[in-house]
Design a protein around this nucleic acid. Sequence first.
DNA 1: TCGTTTACTGACTACTGGTCATTTCTTAAC
DNA 2: GTTAAGAAATGACCAGTAGTCAGTAAACGA
Lengths: 210, 210
Amino acid sequence: MGTAERKEREKEQRRLSIIEAAEKVFLSNGFDNTTMDEIADVAELSKGTLYLYFKSKEELFLEIVKKGSQILNSYFKKAVEKEKNGLDKVKAIGEAFIKFYNKHKEYHEAMMFDHSRLHNFESKDVKAKCVGKDSEGDTIFVDVINEGIADGSIRKDIDPVKTSLLLWGQTMGVLQLIQMRGKSLEVECKTKPEDLMSYFFEYTGHALKA
Amino acid sequence: MGTAERKEREKEQRRLSIIEAAEKVFLSNGFDNTTMDEIADVAELSKGTLYLYFKSKEELFLEIVKKGSQILNSYFKKAVEKEKNGLDKVKAIGEAFIKFYNKHKEYHEAMMFDHSRLHNFESKDVKAKCVGKDSEGDTIFVDVINEGIADGSIRKDIDPVKTSLLLWGQTMGVLQLIQMRGKSLEVECKTKPEDLMSYFFEYTGHALKA
DNA sequence: TCGTTTACTGACTACTGGTCATTTCTTAAC
DNA sequence: GTTAAGAAATGACCAGTAGTCAGTAAACGA
């Protein structure tokens, strides 16, 4: 009989509905201003039940980070398809990042938060990506750089792995700077976030091109 | 009579001793794992007293961040003195950052934490620095880049202000990546943190040099 | 129908940032 | 030396919240 299977499905369904509820609350209120009781309310369950499905508040939060990084990843894949040479693909990835940042600011914020606070946790998707691998084991960044070296659009004396690490770190850093100093940038430096970003692309292009 | 002055001094002294106690606890346990009671214990005062001198736990924490960024600043100043041309000074600043990171990991961590979590607070020293100004109003980064352009060591078509913002953001980002992925870097990418950093310098040199 | 397993509940605990009425100490005038 | 006013410090207390667990309800199989 399919009872066991049905139960399995229902359990998974419940799990997903908790994540959905958590997503709503976390993304609109942030980690610190979200209570487990609130999530339980939205999920129409008691707090205790949440702990049957997730070990802790942080673990539940990580599910949202994971979703965000999956979305980001799909942006990357789409961006790469359109371009012909390696260097353009690198730029397209950068632009995809910005697009993601603009369309999903809440996800981005959650991912940043995770990045800087929840060290102790394992989030394969996010962790792996900055290392050049996404959740499916692809090495988008490294591949694209290698492609660029092969097709002559990227200079030959760079190290693909190190460079992909660098680009990831740099992009995160610059975005973080923009996110936090947005207003003071304009006031104190007369620099619009978009301008700084496109300057960053230009700079990176210059650093990589053959 | 000097009573008032003496009281003033004593008050300042108390303030400093609270900061000192807070520093010990924050730097060894981190923000989240530190309680105000613990700080009060170390300072040999009651918790209530802490709140006579500091508005909140976060404000007290910011004092530590401030100290860190003052130390960092002194590293920068020293680094710049030694070098002759602009590009070398930029590199020296980068190396100073690493030196600071290695010698004062706990401060660096505190500063990172502040950066990513305590948005709402004003920490002039830190905030201003990434914008090219330190607490005394100097614009070390921008100055150094301008110097490099003038002496011909840095290419003329870069924007000093935007570039200094970029370099700051990038450096923070790369360091953050190293700090968080230290072990997995070596395992998954066969890349030592130091190697990645020196590669970063090389890369930056290439991007800036005339 | 009934015993058993599974899912769920919500009152409870432990902890902690922040408050404030009360106590203790200091000072200066008499 | 005494005392009253003011300053400094205290710690019991409050409110909020992550996480627990004994107990209840529902689903199931016999």
